[in-house]
Amino acid sequence: MNQESNMSANSKTDQSASALAQVPIENAKRWPDLNYFNKIIYGASSLAKGMKITFGYLINTKTVVTQQYPENRETLILADRVRANLIMKHNENGYHDCTSCHICEGVCPNASIHVVDRSEPTVSKKELGYFVWRLDSCTFCNLCVMACPFSCLEMTGQFESSTYDQSLLVYNLNQYSGATQNNLAKLADDQARTSAIKAISPYEGPVALEGYHLAGIPKEFLPQKSDAKTSQAREGVNP
């Protein structure tokens, strides 16, 4: 066990002296207690000092820090790492690199990502169908982006996503809805390939989440899910 790191560097061999005595301290500044008349003089001067500072801010209009948001939309500079929206990277042909490996789904702390596979009868291999992302429960922790082995997820700074309806915050990030890529590869003709690809909008209406649509609603009010895992006491092994 790694006990050393918890023990202090300046721990004592001499146990009688308190460990606190070795901490370099600095006493908190205290203004002296004044008598009646000095207090009046000091009080008046201290109040005047404060008023001087606020007056300086009043007359100096350059100190105003307010940003007027909708008006300054054009000049708004966002840091490039701002996390406000999850996107799936698509190339110019409308493809993406997602292999539907479900790692992002597993790493998401609050089940905001749901990966739905699809397969065509001609191809045995599974592909990404819906990539369901629930903005309403996402905490923008960036774990899915870090976990993605193919770097096909990205957080962007597009932060204006408010709606009047919570169900509109459920997105399908997969814009590619053409034939499965395996089938597509069999088509030799470029013309046929282009017509087989159809990019869809990132939002395609709420995606049904099998009853677990809105958090906080007791189960009896929701349609029952047949294969729901039942909660069981966890068998822990006492180390």
Binding site: A111, G216, P218, A228, K229, S231, A233
Partner: peptide, 14 residues
Amino acid sequence: RKDYKDDFILERPW
């Protein structure tokens, strides 16, 4: 407690 159950615990759906 590990065997605690109540109706408001949402199971992870997937």
